[in-house]
Design a protein around this nucleic acid. Structure first.
Length: 596
RNA sequence: GCCCGGAUAGCUCAGUUGGUAGAGCAUCCCCUUGGUAAGGGGAAGGUCAUGAAUUCGAAUUUCAUUCCGGGCUCCA
């Protein structure tokens, strides 16, 4: 067990380079445009680089077309090898220096009585900014940098504030590292699920249906189904049972759960023609599951009860937040709520963590955990008794330790009713995604007055464990699409094998093996178009179909198939039965690899 | 929701300084029967996102709307 840092382990030097590069950017802009064109607001180093926020004045505008000019000026400053000097100054001096800049003044005023040390950084003779650092000593230590994009951003991230302009850039300790990073960005763009989803024909959107409401084609739906069936097959072995609940529920349900107060504005309202009752499309399954539990009296002997639900959920996200399959208004979750006694919590969570490990391994995803706890600054955001929260948060730490799980702290990341143990997976490009979550919840059972009869005959409150493994099958499909770059392992591939006869004289044999493959549950297709074999191979290749089965006179003769893998490898002729046995084995073991 | 950018054939894109549009691929038809990434020919396909305004005339200018993208905020 070790606690790891939430940041991406940027070396101190890299952090200094990026922080300094941000000042060089600001410096270059000051030189190029002068003080009457913009107010510098602020700009930190980030995990991937840095950004700089500023307010443009007097109709001054900046666009990505200006980047080469700014970059050239930055290069000049770096070449001038200016010293970056730190100097501590008094509040009064600082106010004098930045009296014209409302953003700097606001910051200075906000720390006025906190006794903080105010420091400025001077780059050369003509640039000064307020900053605590740290920085490199000379601008020449910034070996490689690039401006990446431009966007709007609210001052202090608050939508009530003014919208500033933000320039994103990055910097590295060598040109080589920068190139590698840029290649990664390019690769990520090539793998973009919106692009691949269209090319591979997996999902689509319709203006008639609405934004954030994806439609899955037969191919896309088959992937979704394969993932869900897999998760279900793992859960069912652990005694999970599926339930099914309606898509809408009365407002009262969400008022009791607390979701109404917190999320009313992002729930879809549903209107009945026959009553004034307010209904909502369900944005989550938890409150519904409490009502299945509450429908009958329970003995401690019944527990734990594990209700799994793959139902569609609807959330009325702000339009600007929608993004491909990453953020949608209609999605499902591989959701489960476990009602159990306090004594059973540890075992249930251990099992859930074990299942999670099994499933992540199947997809070849590396991961770590985040322990999401309350925001100490805002205790009012959480329902329930603080003492119970303290206990449960500590309990979660013990669970992580007992399971020897690597984790980092996520203060302020808890749900309003419970702390969360969130799994953060890393994909093939090193990007991180939150997938699984496990939550120990005392609040919902309390609010819904759930009970069971204990061995001593007294009424007790069950605990509700919320748990999802892949999170949302739709979002997971996006992550898999990018993780595998569209080349899904055989068991997930919408088409596992494409049969390619060389001439139409082989169609009888081709149909025969097509039937056999389908009988064995392998999603196979026959390309019987009047096209050249090469053209058929090209098309199958573009669809990223794992196996192309070339059928000519020789294969018909010997009851075999010539196998070409999508990686270009020609396996030569294999007896058909041997091929069949191999792919069946691959599917059963959910292999991530091809035959060879 | 907010700032910025965008929308031309099913897809990827070209074009029009205001005179109503073009390619490649895909589709359909014909020819071609070919051993590991595109055989040839032809046809069809567009109210240039939608609705207004300006204009003799708008796909092109202006405004609004819808949708998409880059961010901000949010994410039960």
């Amino acid at each position: 067990m070790s606690q790891i840092d939430a940041s991406k382990h940027n070396s101190d030097q890299l952090y200094k380079i990026r922080h300094s590069a941000e000042h060089v950017l600001t410096h270059a802009m000051t030189r190029l445009y002068g003080p009457d064109k913009f107010f510098m607001a602020m700009g930190p180093a980030t995990d991937d680089g840095y950004y700089f926020d500023f307010e443009t004045l007097n109709d001054f505008k900046i666009s990505e077309e200006d980047f080469p000019k700014i970059e050239a000026e930055m290069a000049k400053i770096i070449k001038e090898n200016l010293p970056i000097l730190r100097q501590e100054i008094s509040q009064d001096e600082a106010k004098k220096l930045f009296k014209d800049n409302p953003y700097k003044m606001e910051w200075l005023n906000s720390i006025a009585d906190k006794g903080e040390i105010i420091s400025i950084y001077k780059t050369g003779q003509d640039f000064t900014d307020l900053c605590a650092g740290p920085h490199v000593e000379k601008t020449s230590e910034i070996k490689a940098f690039k401006l990446l994009s431009i966007a709007g951003a609210y001052w202090h991230g608050d939508e009530k504030n003014k919208m500033l302009t933000r320039i994103y850039g990055t910097a590295f300790e060598s040109q080589e590292s920068l190139n590698k990073y840029l290649e990664m960005l390019e690769e990520a763009q090539k793998r973009d699920h919106r692009k691949l989803g269209k090319e591979l024909g997996l999902f689509t959107f319709s203006e008639l249906i609405g934004s954030g409401l994806p439609l899955y084609t037969p191919k896309g739906a088959s992937i979704r189904l394969a993932v869900n069936n897999y998760v279900e097959s793992v859960q069912i072995k652990q005694g999970y049972t599926q339930v099914w609940t309606p898509q809408i529920a009365k407002a009262k349900l969400f008022q009791i759960s607390g979701h109404y107060d917190k999320y009313k504005d992002s729930m879809f309202r549903v209107v009945s023609n026959f009553s004034d009752e307010e209904f909502f499309l369900k944005p989550m399954n938890c409150p519904q599951h409490t009502q299945i539990y509450a429908a009958a009296p329970h003995s401690y002997r019944d527990l734990p009860l594990r209700y799994a639900d793959f139902a569609m959920l609807y959330r009325d996200e702000k339009p600007g937040e929608l993004n491909g399959l990453a953020r949608v208004r209609a999605f499902s979750q591989d959701d489960c709520h476990i009602f159990c006694t306090e004594d059973q919590v540890d075992q249930e969570i251990d099992v859930a963590l074990k299942m999670t490990k099994e499933i992540m391994d199947t997809f070849g995803l590396k991961y770590k955990y985040r322990l999401s706890t309350r925001d100490p600054q805002h205790p009012e955001k959480y329902l329930g008794d603080p003492a119970t929260w303290d206990r449960v948060e500590k309990w979660a730490v013990d669970i992580m330790k007992r399971n020897k799980i690597e984790y980092f702290d996520g203060p302020g990341e808890a749900a309003f009713y419970a702390p969360k143990m969130d799994l953060i997976a890393t994909d093939a490009l090193g990007r991180e995604w939150q997938l699984s979550t496990v939550q120990i919840d005392f609040v919902m059972p309390e609010r819904f007055g759930l009970e069971y009869t204990a061995a001593d005959g007294t009424k007790k409150r069950p605990i509700m464990i919320h748990r999802a493994i892949i999170g949302s099958p739709e979002r997971f499909m996006m992550i898999m699409l990018e993780h595998f770059a569209g080349a899904f392992p055989l068991w997930l591939s919408p088409v596992g094998a494409k049969i390619i006869p060389i001439t139409d004289t082989q169609h009888d044999y081709a149909n025969k093996i097509l039937t056999k493959l389908k009988e064995q549950g392998i999603r196979a297709e026959l390309d019987d178009r009047s096209e050249k074999m090469q053209a058929k191979i090209r098309d199958a290749q573009m669809e990223k179909i794992p196996y192309m089965l070339i059928i000519g006179g020789r294969e018909v003769e010997s009851n075999s198939v010539s196998v070409r893998q999508r990686d270009g490898q020609d396996l030569g002729a294999l007896p058909f039965d041997e091929f069949l046995a191999k792919v069946k084995d691959q599917i059963n073991t959910k292999s991530l690899n091809l035959i060879k």
